[in-house]
């Protein structure tokens, strides 16, 4: 190998060379004219203000989101509550309204509805041993007696039917 080249490769870095290189790099990349301190301060101030505004707007945005979500949930619950109330009222009306009962065996007097007079009519016929219609064997025990009268009367006073 060339002795000069070997000398270059094994040569240790000179501290003076490093400082010169640093100085040269500074000169090369240093902004021309520099930035005045007042301008630097103003930039910093504006940056801080901007970040503060951004943080505040994010906070208000979050609150607005929560408020909107709460309003929507509140509205939905209100609508559901009203629907439930309406259903309950309708159900109560349907429960209270008398249900017409037509052409049933318990309609002894054949007036289209079952009331205590049907039981009364059957009881009178049973007591008087009058001819009895086999259809009046309400409890289907093969006999028409006081038990059938009771069955008719019980139908008449049912809360979800009868008269």
């Amino acid at each position: 190998m060339d002795p000069k080249r070997r000398q270059r490769m094994t040569r240790r870095p000179d501290p003076d060379d490093s400082s010169r290189l640093t100085a040269d790099l500074h000169r090369l990349y240093e902004p021309r004219g520099g930035i005045p301190d007042s301008a630097r301060d103003e930039i910093r101030h504006q940056a801080r203000t901007g970040l503060s505004d951004l943080s505040r707007s994010r906070r208000w945005g979050g609150l607005a989101l929560v408020a909107t979500a709460a309003a929507i949930i509140f509205g939905v619950q209100l609508v559901l509550q009203q629907m439930a109330d309406s259903t309950n009222r309708r159900s109560a009306r349907e429960t209270t309204a008398p249900t017409p009962i037509l052409a049933q065996r318990e309609d002894i007097d054949g007036n289209g509805r079952i009331d205590i007079l049907d039981a009364f009519a059957l009881a009178r016929r049973v007591d008087a041993a009058s001819p009895l219609n086999p259809a009046w064997d309400i409890n289907a025990d093969g006999r028409i007696d006081r038990k059938d009268v009771d069955a008719v009367a019980q139908t008449a006073v049912q809360l979800n039917g009868g008269a």
Partner: peptide, 22 residues
Amino acid sequence: PPYYDPKALNGEGRIILGAFTT
């Protein structure tokens, strides 16, 4: 006691009474 629906005693708030004598 007159005839009535036993369900009326379950807090229905409504009762139908019926009775007769022969």
